[in-house]
């Protein structure tokens, strides 16, 4: 880890003012300190967000939930309103990392979490995301943990967050503050596909700071679940995960939100699957059918082809488990 100067602003305005080309914001540090130790991120200035407040969770008048950037993963997961109105988010958060890391990690930090691709994490290896134009080591290397959806010829790195998958399903807005004022970015637009520029990971301008994430109002009467599949039972990133939210009228699906983790380059909304499910009977067979749709455009590689089937299984089971709650009267 190279030396840097720590700037500890007391206001969002000062924090934005302190931002520069060679600076980085720090929240809990679970991503940044890790990557600084590895030499992957080497900011000259680190701007500490821990004196900025931004640690409230509040219900807005329109029923949405406004989450401060610095709210920790632990607190968000166990917030009574989140547990009641967004259990899928609570489950997703608690499936991520470990107790200690969740105590440190912040909401904004998790949104900004960077890929776990080992080639990205080693400055000695070519990586288009870390050093544009150097090539992608994973493409012809080991790509078991890599994405099958949303990839490009330049990058197949997976977005690692569980929280973001739940947020993608729930629907959310990322509120950012910059020198030109406040901007609200729809969650699905916040993270960018790698395309020709895998180094661009999000729609955040260089002077902007995430101040809040606002969750859409909960769907009336919805049931949901977050299912995470991985090698060991805990403390591991997803090989495939699914956040599923559905509403039902009798046996018919009236609304569906399906988001995927572990299989895509960004928190992945399976819109084709959602569309196909609405209006259909909530049956295991139907869930399997829509799960196939979600991976229609998947591009598997040497080691990650299994993720297509695993991801389909995650969708079908998550939908089934969610719907089972409805039949058991466990509405969210």
């Amino acid at each position: 880890m190279q030396s840097f100067e720590l700037i500890r602003p007391e206001s969002v305005k000062d924090a934005i003012g302190a931002q520069s080309e060679r600076s980085a914001y720090i929240g809990g540090g679970t991503t940044l300190v890790d990557l600084m130790k590895l030499g992957v991120m080497q900011p000259d200035h680190v701007v500490d967000t821990n004196r900025l407040g931004l640690d409230e969770i509040e219900v807005l008048d329109d029923g949405r939930l406004k989450i401060g950037a610095r709210v920790s993963n632990s607190r968000l997961a166990t917030d009574a309103r989140v547990e009641r109105d967004y259990p899928v988010l609570s489950q997703a958060l608690l499936s991520g990392a470990s107790t200690g890391l969740r105590n440190m990690a912040t909401t904004a930090g998790n949104v900004m979490q960077r890929t776990r691709c080992p080639y990205f994490r080693d400055p000695a290896k070519p990586c288009n995301k870390r050093e544009p134009g150097t090539g992608c080591s994973a493409m012809d290397g080991i790509n078991r943990n890599h994405a099958v959806l949303g990839t490009s010829e330049h990058c197949i790195a997976t977005h690692p967050s569980d929280m973001c998958v739940a947020m993608a399903a729930i629907g959310a807005t990322v509120v950012v503050e910059g020198r030109k004022g406040t901007r609200e970015i729809p969650f699905e637009d916040f993270h960018l596909l790698p395309g020709d520029h895998p180094e661009r990971e999000h729609d955040l301008r260089s002077d902007e700071l995430i101040t809040h994430v606002v969750l859409d109002a909960p769907l009336e009467g919805a049931v949901s679940t977050y299912l995470k599949l991985r090698d060991r039972a805990s403390y591991e990133f997803a090989l495939a995960s699914c956040a599923a939210i559905v509403t039902l009228e009798g046996t018919k699906v009236t609304a569906a939100r399906i988001a995927l983790g572990g299989v895509a380059t960004k928190p992945w909304r399976a819109v084709d699957a959602e569309a196909a499910l609405v209006g259909e009977d909530a049956t295991a067979k139907m869930f399997e059918q829509v799960a196939l749709l979600a991976f229609q455009r998947a591009i598997p590689l040497e080691h990650n082809a299994f993720k297509v089937e695993l991801g389909q299984q995650a969708i079908a089971r998550a939908l089934r488990d969610a719907v089972q709650q409805a039949s058991q009267g466990e509405h969210q």
Partner: peptide
Amino acid sequence: DKSGYLYNANLADYIVPVHAD
């Protein structure tokens, strides 16, 4: 990997059992 690079030289990618297992 094919180049002899040790890909998972860390305790997050080299998977050992944890309490939950």
